[in-house]
């Protein structure tokens, strides 16, 4: 007779199992790869051509491509992590997951890991199309800084997504609509397609609570010509702030997932569909 696996092992197994489904799903449905690569390029191309038709300096084209690439991660966090528990509830999978020995946090970690694969494919395609098709120039003079900014952004962003996911344990369509509300406004506030400093310092500083605001600004400073001239803060300070945000959102996710799961159990909402 073997002993019961430790909570850490259960967490790791559940996360791996959920990530596996996402990755295998991508491989099974090849049309997704087309959808995940060509379609995101269209939106980025539209903004890039808008800059070009307006006669803007070419430095901004790199800003647009990086923003387009990070859009893929934002959409993944919003629709495949933050709202995922809503979809799981609607499809009847949530009750199975909740009644298993694993935690909701483990499932979310797996979704994040699995989602990163397809999302990185999208983001990579956008950057590749920007460079190869549209001739956008990057200047990766500080690769370590760029890597730190990128990883810090992802850590903080996915932790934020996990915290937001707890809302969907309790709410139905109302939560889904709120998620929709965040899509375009975050494009605007985080400066996906323009330097966030142009929002004005007070607004940009308030928007810095969103990981993508600081992350994009730091990435542009590390990889785009002209990035430093449009910077909001020094890049190292932004990377440090991203690490702090990752920690805060991670702790917040842990607390809110517990609180909302308890509330959802008490109110009988874990299995409630179409609410």
């Amino acid at each position: 007779m073997t002993g019961r696996p430790s909570p850490a092992v259960v967490f790791a197994r559940a996360a791996w199992g959920r990530a596996y489904v996402r990755v295998v799903g991508l491989n099974r449905e090849l049309s997704w790869i087309v959808g995940d690569t060509i379609l995101p390029v269209l939106g980025t191309a539209a903004y890039l051509l808008a800059y070009r038709s307006l006669g803007a300096p070419r430095d901004f084209e790199g800003f647009v491509v990086l923003g387009g690439a990070m859009t893929a991660y934002w959409l993944n966090v919003l629709w495949s992590l933050a709202t995922q528990l809503y979809w799981e509830k609607e499809s009847g999978n949530l009750e199975i997951a909740i009644s298993s020995p694993c935690t909701v946090g483990a499932l979310l970690a797996g979704m994040a890991l699995g989602g990163l694969v397809s999302t990185t494919l999208r983001a990579g395609t956008i950057v590749a199309a920007g460079v190869l098709v549209f001739g956008v120039r990057f200047d990766l003079s500080e690769p370590l800084l760029a890597g730190g900014a990128f990883l810090g952004t992802l850590a903080a962003l996915y932790a934020l997504g996990a915290a937001a996911a707890s809302i969907f344990l309790v709410y139905g369509r109302a939560g889904w609509q709120v998620a929709m509300l965040f899509q375009e406004p975050v494009y605007l506030l985080s400066g996906f397609y323009f330097p966030v400093s142009r929002l004005g310092r007070p607004v940009a500083m308030a928007a810095s609570l969103l990981p993508l605001t600081l992350g994009l600004d730091a990435l542009r400073q590390a990889a785009c010509p002209g990035g430093r001239a449009e910077a909001l803060f020094p890049p190292l300070a932004e990377v440090a702030a991203l690490a702090g945000l990752a920690l805060v959102f991670g702790l917040l996710a842990r607390a809110t997932l517990r609180a909302f799961e308890t509330r959802a159990r008490r109110e009988g909402r874990l299995t409630l569909r179409w609410q």
Binding site: G55, F60, P185, Y187, L188, Y193, F194, R198
Partner: peptide, 14 residues
């Protein structure tokens, strides 16, 4: 918000 994004793009570019 989507429109304001384009307004800002315009202001940055021109």
């Amino acid at each position: 918000a989507a429109t304001m994004l384009l307004v800002l793009i315009f202001e940055v570019a021109r």
